[in-house]
Structure formats: C-alpha cells, structure tokens
Design a protein around this nucleic acid. Structure first.
Lengths: 196, 196
DNA sequence: TACCATACATACGAGGTGTATATTAAATTA
DNA sequence: TAATTTAATATACACCTCGTATGTATGGTA
C-alpha cells in the first residue's frame, strides 16, 4: 500500500501541472482532455478516476493556484508590520498577482464562469478571512469606521482585483500600475476614521 | 429591399431574445444552438448567417444587456443632480443591477470568460467613459484628490460590481445589500479631498 | 502462490459545433 | 410580367469532445 499511492499522487500532480499549462494557454473550454492526458503519457481513464470530470480537474487547479496566491498575499501583508499598512500591502500584492497570465485566465476568468462564485472556494475564503480579521482588528483599534468587516474586506479585495485586471489588459502595464495602486490607496483611505 | 431586411431584423431579434433566456438559465456552454434556434422556429442556418458563430451571438446579447445597464445607471446618476451624489448613485445602481440573474450569469460570468476583458466592450467602455468624465469634473471642481480619472472610475465601478456579486451570491440578499452599499459609500469617500 | 482490489486503458455512444451545399423567396431588370 | 440574380435560410455532413461502461494488468495481501 505504498507504491500505488505514490504513483497515484505522481499522476495527479502530472495532470494538474499539465492542466495549469493548457488552461492558461488555451482556456478551459478549448482544452482537450485527450490531448492533455496524452501529453503526460496517460489517458482520460486516469483523469476521470482521479478528478471525476473536467470541472473537477479545474477545481483542483484553481485550488492550487489560489492557495499559492493567498499565501503570497498574506505573507506580503504580514511583513508590513502595521495592520493598516498590511491591508494596503496585501491589496497591492493582489494587484500584482493578477498580472500573471495563469492567474488571470484560470482564476479570474474561467474559474468563476465554470465553478461559480469565487467567494465560496475554500482557499479564497480563507484569504478573505485573513483580510477580514485584519479589518476587524483595525475597527477595534478605532482606526477604521464602524462598518461591516466582511463588506469592507470584500470591496477592498474587489477593487484590488479590478485594478489588476485593468493593469493586465492595458497595453502598457508598467505605466498603468502606479496609477492603479495610487487610486487603490486613495479609495482605501475612505475606510479610515481619520483620513491621512 | 424592404421585406427582406425587415424579416432579417425580426429573426435577429428573435434569436437574441431566445439566447438571453437560454444563456441566463443554462449558461453559455450548456446552451445548444440547435435547441435555441428551434425554439423560435428557425435552424442554425439563420444563426450562423447572422452572427458568424456561437460567440457572435453571445457578443450581440452582451451588447444589448450591457447598453441597457449603462443607460439605466447613467440615468440614475443624472437624476441625482449633484456630481458627487451622482457618482455614488450610479455605483449603487450598478450594485442593484447585478442582482438580476441575467446580468450576473451572462455579463459578469460567461461574458468575460468567452469574450475577454469587459473594458474592451463598446457599451461597457461608453459607460465607463461617463463615470470617468464625472470624475474629471469633480477633480476640476477641486472636490476629489488629483488622481488618475480613469483609474478612479475603474476602481469605483469595480468595487460596485464586486459588492453586487457578493450580494447576489449571498443567502440573504436583502440583508446584505445595505451593508454592501454602506461599505461602498465609505470607500468612495476616500476619493474626496475633504472627507465628509 | 493464489486471490482480490483498484488504478488505468480501451471502446462506445450521444451530442455539439462549424461548414458546404441545396433551396426558396424576394428584389431587380428587361 | 417574366426571367434572372441575389441572398437568407434549411439541410446534410464531417469532425471533435465528453462521459461512461467495460476490460486489463499490477501491486498488495492472505
């Protein structure tokens, strides 16, 4: 009961890795499961056994990318030291993450369309939970207005993601990025009780 | 050169109308073009002649809904009289619009995934143009901070749309709606030079 | 060694898209 | 008005893809 589990885990990893590439390059709908499995020397038999169906594979891919994103953004925010600065930094980290084509295509476009509301995804909500608790701390410290913490967290990350999409789609990302982050910071100060 | 154009326009309208229903209920991918055309007494021949392909039909549907949305939101903002209040009202109008299932499924989920970046769509960008010019006026009036107008407009509408998605996906929309709009107003004040 | 469970391969059926060809009805022209 | 052309729609076909049902072979177990 060792060799089998190991090879199965290896095959799952191979499939997820191939799917990340295919979904990112061709999009979910245009990715053929036949081609995808063949690329790693398997057939659809392995796929349907491991992930149930095509959606299941996408869910696994999204979960992997998503948790990587959450980890990265959380780390960035934590490193800022101050809670308020951490919130801003975490948002900025999100903006930059959406520049990655893989993130854009899989997590921001196909994910919601195929899997439904992102706020229900396990890793996404865990990340949201993190910013929400930061917001709660800031409200308790009297630094933020007394608004609903979840609402604030959602709008903040929503604004960040939208900024990211804009940056990513623009012809001159490097030029637009500072404008986007500046506007993001300005918006965020709207949550402060005493604006800077 | 009259009878033909008229019947063609009628058929296009019929197809778009049927597509709005099908796409909203089943989603884009799960909608069969055979069934859809049969529903209005046509075949796929008419469809491919008029719209090129399935994507073309979605594009037509999105444009219709989208321009309806833009018109509605713009009207709401205009009715507010004051520029600043108009900006807030327009945002709130967007939030409410995303409660409509048709808007959610077609414009917010499938649209971006199939047609790409929404900010490139004609009607969407025309609406953005409207809020952008409002922002520019407010900056000229010295009411808003001197930030990039397009960035501000995008983040504002992005925050509104995200709030809308949250409200729409929640189990108790009527309960969440006020929280979302309150947080939206708070965020928006971040753009003001002298917060209220 | 014999048996069993299961991870994966193979084969099959249903359905969907897009295209090429046929048809029919309207518009034009003589 | 009759013939001809144009073009909007119908029909038929080829190809692809997904999901499932069945087969097979290998690793674990008694």
């Amino acid at each position: 009961m060792n060799q089998r589990l190991k090879s199965m885990a290896e095959n799952r990893a191979k499939l997820i890795s191939a799917a990340r590439k295919a979904f990112a390059e061709k999009g979910y709908a245009a990715s053929s499961m036949d081609d995808l499995t063949a690329d790693v020397g398997l057939t659809r038999g392995a796929l349907y056994h491991n992930f149930g169906d095509k959606r299941g594979l996408l869910a696994a891919v999204v979960e992997q990318i998503d948790s990587e994103m959450a980890l990265h953004a959380h780390k960035a925010g934590e490193a800022a030291g101050d809670d308020w600065l951490g919130l801003l930094t975490e948002g900025a980290a999100y903006i930059e993450l959406a520049l990655v084509p893989e993130v854009q295509r899989i997590v921001l476009l196909d994910g919601p369309a195929v899997l439904g509301d992102p706020s229900q995804w396990p890793s996404q909500s865990s990340c949201l939970q993190s910013t929400k608790s930061t917001v709660e701390r800031l409200i308790a410290q009297g630094k933020l207005k007394q608004i609903d913490a979840e609402a604030a967290a959602r709008l903040i990350s929503g604004a960040a993601l939208n900024a990211a999409l804009w940056v990513a789609a623009s012809a001159e990302p490097q030029e637009v990025l500072p404008k986007a982050t500046e506007a993001f910071y300005a918006l965020a100060t709207g949550l402060l009780k005493t604006p800077v």
